[in-house]
C-alpha cells in the first residue's frame, strides 16, 4: 500500500510536470502566430497535389485557396519564418509520411544560409512540430551553439521564466488551437509601400556552401524516390538580396538536374505586382493583394505545365474547399 501511494504521488508529479510544460510553452495563437505554421498542417486533410516548401517568402506570397479558386489546384504551404534548407528537407520528409504530392515547389531563398540563424526562429518552427525521427534530425541540424535538445524535449527548461509573463492566451489555448493559416498561407492585409530599400551589399563570396547543395540534392533525391516532380522557385521580393551570382548557380543546378526553375523577381510586371500597394513591409514580402496576384499567375503555370487535376470537379474535395473558401473570404474581409 505504501509503495502504491508513492507511485501515485510520482504519477501526479509527472502529470503536473507535463501540465506545466504545456502551460509555460508559448501558444502562438494570438501573438507570434508564425509559431503555429508547422502544427497547422496536422489538422488538415492530407490529399494535396502540390506542396510548397520554404521560408516566409512562401507562406506570405502563395495562397493555396486562391489557386484552388482559380485553377482547382489542391495545395498546401509548409513554410516557416527563416526556414533553413535542412529544415525544409526534414519538413518535406515528414510531409511525405502523410501524403505523396504530385509536385513539390521549393523556394531557393534559403540557399543563402549555411548555418543556424537564431534560436527564436528555430523555436517558431520546431516547438509545435509532432515528435518523429524527422523532428529529432531537424533539431540536431538546426540548433545554435547555446541550444540543447533537452530544451525541445522538455519545453519547461526553455520557457520556465514565462511564469512571470503568462497571458490570457496561455490559458485560452492550453488545450485547443485556433486556425491562423489557410492551407499554410498567412494573410497579411497591411500595406507598406516600398520606398527606402536597403542598398546592395558586396559579399566576399557568392558561392552557395556545400551544406546547402547537400540538402538541395537530398530534396531532389527524396522527390525522385517518391515520383514527385520538384520545381524550384525564387519568390518575388524587392530587397536586393538575391544576387546575379546566386541566380547563375541555381540556373546551372536546375539545368544540370533537369529541374524546372522560376525566378519570379523577373516577372513582377507580368504578374502585375505593384510595390506601392502589394507589400506589407516595404517590398520584402507580398501582402494579401500581392499574394492573390502571385498565386493566380503561378497557379496557371502549375496547372498547365504539370498537368494537375482540377479538383473543383471532385464533389468530395469541392465540398470541403467550399467551406475553406468561406472561412478564407471571411478572413480576407475581416
Amino acid at each position: 500500500m505504501k509503495y502504491f501511494r508513492i507511485i501515485a504521488i510520482i504519477i501526479i508529479f509527472i502529470l503536473v510536470f507535463i501540465f506545466l510544460n504545456k502551460l509555460l510553452a508559448p501558444k502562438y495563437m494570438e501573438d507570434l502566430v508564425e509559431g503555429s505554421m508547422t502544427s497547422a498542417y496536422y489538422d488538415e486533410e492530407k490529399n494535396h497535389e502540390v506542396i510548397f516548401i520554404g521560408d516566409c517568402e512562401v507562406y506570405a506570397n502563395f495562397s493555396p485557396l486562391e489557386m484552388y479558386q482559380n485553377e482547382g489546384i489542391v495545395s498546401y504551404v509548409r513554410g516557416n519564418s527563416q526556414q533553413l534548407i535542412w529544415q525544409s528537407y526534414y519538413l518535406l520528409k515528414e510531409t511525405l509520411k502523410y501524403e505523396i504530392p504530385k509536385v513539390v515547389v521549393f523556394n531557393v531563398n534559403s540557399m543563402r544560409y549555411d548555418e543556424p540563424v537564431s534560436e527564436a526562429y528555430n523555436r517558431l518552427m520546431i516547438d509545435n512540430m509532432k515528435w518523429s525521427k524527422e523532428k529529432v534530425d531537424l533539431i540536431e541540424a538546426s540548433m545554435t551553439d547555446e541550444e540543447n535538445i533537452l530544451y525541445y524535449i522538455f519545453p519547461i527548461l526553455r520557457y520556465h521564466s514565462r511564469f512571470a509573463e503568462l497571458k490570457q492566451e496561455d490559458f485560452d489555448y492550453l488545450f485547443k488551437t485556433k486556425k491562423n493559416t489557410y492551407n499554410g498561407f498567412l494573410i497579411n492585409k497591411n500595406v507598406k509601400p516600398a520606398e527606402n530599400l536597403p542598398t546592395k551589399r558586396r559579399l566576399a563570396n557568392y558561392s552557395f556552401s556545400d551544406i546547402c547543395y547537400d540538402y538541395l540534392n537530398k530534396i531532389r533525391d527524396l522527390c525522385k524516390e517518391n515520383g514527385i516532380t520538384l520545381v524550384l522557385i525564387k519568390a518575388p521580393s524587392l530587397y536586393p538580396y538575391w544576387y546575379d551570382e546566386y541566380e547563375e548557380q541555381i540556373v546551372k543546378y536546375s539545368a544540370e538536374n533537369a529541374i524546372p526553375y522560376y525566378n519570379f523577381t523577373k516577372y513582377v510586371q507580368e504578374i502585375g505586382i505593384d510595390y506601392s500597394l502589394d507589400t506589407y513591409d516595404g517590398g520584402l514580402h507580398l501582402n494579401l493583394s500581392g499574394a492573390e496576384k502571385m498565386s493566380k499567375y503561378f497557379g496557371k503555370i502549375l496547372k498547365e505545365t504539370f498537368n494537375l487535376t482540377d479538383y473543383r470537379n471532385d464533389d468530395n474535395v469541392s465540398k470541403l474547399y467550399e467551406e475553406k473558401l468561406k472561412e478564407y473570404n471571411k478572413a480576407k474581409e475581416a
Binding site: V16, Y151, R158, H160, S161
Partner: peptide, 16 residues
C-alpha cells in the same frame, strides 16, 4: 521531494 523539483524547474534561473 517532488515539490522541490517543480519549484526549481519553474522558478530557477537557468538555461539560455
Amino acid at each position: 521531494f517532488c515539490m522541490m523539483i517543480l519549484v526549481i524547474f519553474v522558478f530557477g534561473v537557468y538555461g539560455i
